[in-house]
Amino acid sequence: MMPVPKTHRNRILAIAIAVAVVIAIVLVAVSYLTRDGADETTPVVTTDTVATETVAPDTSTAVALVAGIPQKGTVLGKAGTTVRLLQFEDFQCPVCKRYTDDALPALINEYVKPGLVRIDFRGLTFLGPDSEKALRIALAAGLQNRLWEVVGLFYENQGTENSGWVTDALIDRILGEVPGLDAAKVKVDAKSPAVTKQIAATQAEATALNVQGTPWFYVGVGFRPPYSISPLPLEPSAFRPALDGALKG
């Protein structure tokens, strides 16, 4: 092929670069301007999330509380949120139930729903066999991004410690209350090595972070390692200073 004259080539190059840069800038502008578009125009529908803004009248409080909020695994809240609240808990811990009843709804409404904070569930099993049985079901539901409904429902039905209250009938009832959940798959996944590994990883994380009981809370901001907070009493007002502070950076 005949070489193109240099001046002509330079002109083509300048035009091509200008076009490429303009296209890149347009892509940047579109990306930036549409970053929240999906959240504004659709009822929080993602490929792997429960996405029902409309809650059936007979839906339990636990299910209604998290309806329409994106979930992924153990995380409740919009991805890309830089502040996260890690909560270590045990399904048999009465104080965890009190926190779930008294503080969590306000935290979800004030911080998670507006996309300010993500809450990350960390389940421990130190109280006994019922803790582990419930946790396995919750984590298996997390594989379908429905963990938070199950967490709330277990606390709603919390029984006496290690009395065998996490019965198969209770599990069936709880799983039946979660919209869009494949209950049969949850029961299979609950016994899977993946769930066992997740439980062990959380235990190791709790040891590394020096978790001293449940519920135990940490706040993580961006890349920085999470730091422990001690919100007492377990009411929304005790969490607000830590979360507001984290949001300010």
């Binding site: 080539r9 083509i12 190059l13 091509a16 670069i17 076009v19 490429a20 840069v21 296209i23 890149a24 800038i25 892509l27 940047v28």
Partner: peptide, 13 residues
């Protein structure tokens, strides 16, 4: 020439 333009556009993005 087009490769260079594509590279610079990609670098921008």
């Amino acid at each position: 020439t087009l490769t260079t333009a594509l590279a610079i556009g990609s670098l921008t993005f």
